[in-house]
Design a protein around this nucleic acid. Structure first.
Lengths: 137, 137
DNA sequence: CCTGGCGTTGACCCCGGCGTCAAGCCGTAC
DNA sequence: GTACGGCTTGACGCCGGGGTCAACGCCAGG
């Protein structure tokens, strides 16, 4: 299988594959003409990469999963290093979600205040005004 | 007040201020030497920008708030355009949070599966294996 | 023979929000 | 004088994950 076919079967592009190779993920063999050649196993590795990428993992974070598969394990997350990435990602997601949720709540409050102020037109004074650290103005 | 002082008082850098000016936010007057000169009002505008930036708004999204303040309104979000940005941001945050939460749940499941598989060593078969669209592998 | 389709490498472009020089001007303190 | 700190403009770097040329090689079909 050559690069175009692999890319098509994984739903990605040849450019991405060459990029992965340049980063040291997904090495390719070469045929007599210098063309990259891949096997079915490479499709598995590539699918693992794409799956994690779609889930928001960075390329470097997919490396343990790919190496795990190359080591012959049934799934990319059968190895301790992959599970460690999971744990880090989980913490990262929690922090990220918490932060976004806090912002979301603030925006929602500001919107609600504005709507209330527009309704009760004569008393548009901002009632409690609990400007927190994230929202000092 | 010159650029260095304003930057210090707003907790940012001169580089950022020049950048904002190049983007058409926060214009500055010039003194005889060509130095940028700012007033207290500019500090308010700048604080509004920084607050929104800290909350994850893009620079362009802060523009309605800044213009609202410059128009003499008591707060940056006293104008319809600002409220519209709030609404868009709210939807954006909801979508973003939902996506992150879905990923978080998947990662958590995979971790739990791995831990369970490590505990019950003789039966490490992935029980239900509900590989969803986001997580095909 | 020529065209078309695949492959190759190398190099620059994109996005946002600045950081980090470089070279030069201005005023002040020593 | 000269050294220093603050200001000016301009230009390039960075981060990730590739997109999009350019210029070329290789092979098959009509």
């Amino acid at each position: 299988m050559r690069i175009g076919e692999l890319a098509a079967r994984a739903g990605t592009t040849t450019r991405a594959l060459r990029y992965y190779e340049s980063r040291g993920l997904l090495a390719a063999r070469r045929d007599a003409r210098g063309y990259r050649t891949y096997g079915e196993e490479d499709l598995r590795l590539l699918r693992q990469i794409r799956t994690l990428q779609n889930a928001g993992f960075g390329l470097e974070e997919t490396r343990p999963f790919v190496e795990c598969l190359r080591a012959g394990h049934p799934t990319g997350d059968s190895c301790p290093a992959s599970l460690e990435v999971y744990r880090e990602k989980l913490a990262e997601l929690d922090a990220h979600i918490a932060r976004l949720s806090a912002v979301r709540e603030l925006v929602r409050e500001r919107l609600a205040d504005a709507d209330a102020g527009a309704a009760a037109d004569s008393a548009p004074a901002p009632p409690p005004a609990p400007r927190c650290a994230l929202w000092p103005a």
